[in-house]
């Protein structure tokens, strides 16, 4: 977990995002450096998912900038962002329920060409999550929550991303699966992937993050290293459920 204070990979500068009249992100600014795990924590409706959706251009910010590897994402259409090496695992996993496991992976590789590369990456995904191979021909909708999360990870890896946005990967999973999922996040990071992790499970998230930001009603109210935040009184009270 040694972060090199080096290259900035992703930077948000004073981002304001609206849902109709609702001011969901109120001037958010933060950075993610290459090789880091950075987490955004906060309660329901704090703007965590909106932040990721804004980065991926699913929401266009009203003002402010999102810069990834020197490119402006807020003016790039969503479907072109994957080509820059950024994968987004959305909230609720969003597996295609009526595509097979294999087809879900093939769709993950939509932006790349080359049969051999695609096949190699599918096999690689099966190596990381052998359970997916067993169910290759099953429809995505028949998988359990934990298996869907594995598939969502494997699908994101199809483009061999440099950076991965993860939205609540532990949501709705049994404690055992939560462990597995966090282990794979650590492994991905060790393999060189930069990770921006949104979590309600603040304790787990801060445990693996180099740095964290605390979001509250669309604003960043605290920031620091993972361990500093985990020891911060306010954070412990509000997000770690301690009195």
């Amino acid at each position: 977990m040694t972060a090199k204070p080096s290259e900035v990979m992703l930077e948000l500068k004073n981002v304001n995002t609206f849902y109709g009249q609702i001011h969901a992100l109120k001037g958010i600014s933060f950075t993610v450096n290459k090789g880091e795990i950075v987490t955004l924590i906060g309660g329901n409706g704090a703007g965590k998912t909106t932040t990721l959706r804004t980065i991926s251009s699913l929401k266009t910010p009203k003002t402010g900038e999102v810069i990834y590897k020197g490119k402006a994402l807020h003016t790039t259409p969503t479907h072109d962002i994957v080509k820059l090496g950024m994968a987004h695992v959305p909230e609720g996993r969003r597996i295609f329920p009526r595509l097979t496991i294999r087809e879900n992976l093939e769709i993950g590789a939509f932006s790349i060409n080359g049969k051999d590369v695609i096949e190699e990456r599918i096999q690689n995904g099966y190596k990381i999550f052998p359970r997916l191979k067993e169910r290759e021909k099953q429809l995505g909708g028949t998988l359990s929550g934990g298996e869907q999360q594995m598939l969502a990870f494997a699908r994101a890896l199809m483009i061999d991303p440099e950076m991965i946005l993860l939205d609540e990967p532990s949501m709705g999973l049994s404690p055992l699966f939560v462990e597995t999922i966090f282990d794979s996040i650590r492994a991905l990071n060790a393999a060189g992937k930069t990770i921006l992790l949104v979590e309600q499970n603040a304790l787990m998230a801060l445990g693996i993050a180099n740095r964290g930001y605390v979001l509250q009603t669309g604003e960043i109210v605290l920031s620091g290293t993972g361990s500093d935040l985990a020891q911060n009184d306010e954070v412990r009270k509000k997000y770690l459920g301690e009195d």
Binding site: S56, L58, P77, T78, H79, D80, V82, K83, A87, H88, P90, R94, F96, P97, R98, L99, E103, E106, I107, G108, F110, S111, R155, I159
Partner: peptide, 24 residues
């Protein structure tokens, strides 16, 4: 076919399809 698969993906979930690099 790849395009056929993309049609099925878009029919199931447009925003996730665009996250996969599909121009909806």
């Amino acid at each position: 076919t790849k395009t056929g698969r993309a049609i099925r993906a878009v029919a199931q979930d447009q925003s996730t399809s665009s996250l996969m690099g599909i121009n909806v």
